[in-house]
Simulated scan of single mutants.
Amino acid sequence: MTAAPNPIATHHLPFFVTAPGDTDVLFNVTVVFVVASIVMTGVIFLTIHSLPERMAHKSKKVQLDIVALLCLLALLTHEHLFWFAAILLAFIDIPDFLTPFKSIASSVETIAGQEAPGGVVDHPDSSPPKAVPADQPRQDRKGAARA
Rank of each mutant, 00 (worst) to 15 (best):
H80V: 13
P52L: 01
T18N: 09
P5Y: 11
F16W: 11
H49R: 03
L81K: 12
V67I: 06
D24W: 01
L26E: 10
P52T: 01
F16E: 09
I44W: 15
P5L: 10
T2S: 12
V43E: 09
N6R: 13
E79Y: 15
V34Y: 14
L64G: 02
D22P: 00
A85N: 10
V32M: 02
V43H: 10
D22S: 02
A74L: 04
A85Y: 04
A56P: 01
V17R: 09
F84S: 00
E79C: 13
L72W: 10
T10P: 09
L51R: 13
V39M: 04
K60L: 08
V29F: 03
F15M: 11
I8N: 15
S59Q: 12
V62M: 08
A56R: 02
K58Y: 01
I87F: 03
V34L: 11
A86M: 01
V31Y: 12
V43K: 09
P20R: 04
L64N: 05
A56C: 02
L73H: 08
D22V: 00
V29I: 11
L69A: 12
A4S: 10
A85M: 14
L75H: 07
I48W: 14
T23N: 06
F27Y: 14
V32N: 06
C71I: 02
A9G: 11
Q63V: 04
I38F: 08
K61Q: 07
